[in-house]
């Protein structure tokens, strides 16, 4: 059965491109427009991987990770940040709240797939 990935980003084009890349490789993709929407959808349906942006209206990516990690269901589910933020301080914050990895935008579809395969197979 195809694995499900939750893509959280306020940019419609990024969501589309992430979904396009992942669906092309056989994954199922659920899209969310910000942290709140992402949290709600993650709780509604279990996903195998969360891919989230950092800067979003409402709830940002780091807060989303904190909230997900506080949910027993998502304590060990891989969560990748996909953001324009590239500073070490932000990455350290991500590591501290429980992010599994950090991908700096713009992403290369091949590299994204490689990382996703490495993380969830």
């Amino acid at each position: 059965m195809a694995k499900t990935i939750l893509a959280v980003d306020d940019s419609n084009s990024i969501r589309q491109m992430v979904a396009f890349t992942l669906k092309g490789a056989g994954y199922q993709v659920v899209e969310a427009v910000d942290g709140n929407d992402g949290l709600s959808k993650a709780r509604a349906k279990a996903v195998d991987l969360v891919l989230t942006d950092q800067n979003m209206p409402g709830m940002d990516g780091l807060t989303l990770i904190k909230n997900l990690r506080a949910t027993p269901q998502y304590r060990s589910v891989p969560i990748l940040m996909l953001t324009t933020e590239s500073s070490d301080s932000m990455k350290n914050q991500g590591r501290a709240v429980g992010a599994t990895g950090w991908l700096v935008k713009p992403f290369d579809p091949k590299k994204l797939l490689e990382v996703v395969k490495k993380v969830i197979g």
Partner: peptide, 16 residues
């Protein structure tokens, strides 16, 4: 400044 990129080269990937 959230966007520091100067070019559209693919960004770095780091797994923790």
């Amino acid at each position: 400044q959230a966007v520091s990129q100067q070019k559209m080269h693919a960004g770095d990937v780091e797994l923790f």
